[in-house]
Simulated assay, not measured.
Amino acid sequence: MSMHVTSVGALRDPICRYPGSTLPVRGPCAELTPPYVAFLGGSETFGRFIEAPFVARVAHQLGQSCVNLGSINAGLDAMLNDAGVMRIAAGAGLSVVQLPPVQDLSNLYYRVHPRRNDRFLAPTARLTALYPKVDFTEFHFTRHLVTTLHQTGPGHFALLRDELRAVWLARMTQLLQALGERAFLLWLQYDALPPQAGDLPGPDPLAVTDAMVERLKPLARGVVEVPVTLAGHVPGETGKMVFGPLQAPAAGHMPGPAMHQRIATRLSAAITALH
């Protein structure tokens, strides 16, 4: 197990890499003796800036072994392309899958970093033809990319939006089928961001709609929806988090300990109801 350090004074997040996996997930590494509940997701599941993420709280509430496979800025590509992580998740009695935003995956229009899926790597010829006046060397993050493209040419953006949603549905279907339909979908719905105007920009998970989630329900045990308020919008909440001085803005845009407790309570109730 190694430690993840990004700034002086930051939380020294324990990082675990399981055998056969290259994806850095939240540690400490857990025993993989069945039965256990696996949790797949990005920064929220990992519990960035949080000493006790919701996965650890679910384990405490249920008295059951829980394996946190959350990885910072990971999306569907990072999960599906890591054989070790998928093997662990498929071996769980139950898996909880945090719904990711649609923009953090490679598609017909652009490629993302294979592990940190929020990183934009390069456009394809299809995207440069759609936006010939855009300098794509200016973009490093997918949300900045899609927000700018939406503002630059909303009419053209519909083609990209439809592709992202279609690819997201296809890969979510692939993921849930690989888990043997033994998964809860965790839909974190941020309620403290500006209201959505048109299709974009909007709250995370970006561009995920009720209709898309309905398409996935037959492949899952259920959907747990949790309204989430960012830590920066809750007085005193960031003071309960651990981060370095340069990370304060990022911490304010993540769920704080109170939200992790709310998520854990909702998940624990849903898992208990299965028995």
Rank of each mutant, 00 (worst) to 15 (best):
F120D: 05
I50Y: 01
G70K: 07
Q98M: 14
S95W: 06
M86H: 12
Y131F: 12
A38P: 02
S95F: 07
G75L: 05
A83I: 10
L76Y: 03
A90Q: 15
A38Y: 01
P53K: 01
F49V: 11
G84C: 10
Y36C: 09
R115V: 13
L76T: 01
D104S: 15
N68M: 13
P53S: 07
R111A: 12
E44S: 14
L69T: 05
Y109M: 11
L69K: 10
A89M: 15
V58T: 08
L94H: 14
D77G: 07
L62K: 07
G75W: 01
V102K: 04
S43H: 13
I50A: 03
A59D: 00
A129T: 00
P123R: 08
Y109T: 07
R115E: 08
N68E: 14
P132E: 02
H60K: 04
K133M: 05
P53G: 04
Y109A: 11
K133W: 03
V97G: 09
I72E: 07
R116A: 15
S65Y: 12
A122S: 09
D118V: 09
G75N: 05
P101E: 12
D104N: 14
Q103I: 12
E51C: 09
P114F: 08
A129R: 04
G93F: 14
D118I: 07
A125K: 13
L94D: 11
S95P: 08
A90F: 15
D118L: 09
F46V: 06
M86S: 11
N117D: 05
P123C: 07
A122C: 09
P34F: 09
E44Y: 12
R48C: 06
Q103F: 13
V102E: 04
L69I: 08
A89K: 15
L99C: 09
A38Q: 02
F39E: 03
P101R: 15
S43I: 15
A83E: 15
Y36T: 11
S71D: 10
E44T: 14
T128E: 07
G47L: 14
P35L: 11
G91A: 15
G70W: 10
D118A: 11
V102F: 06
A56G: 03
G42P: 05
V112S: 02
L40D: 03
F49D: 00
F120A: 02
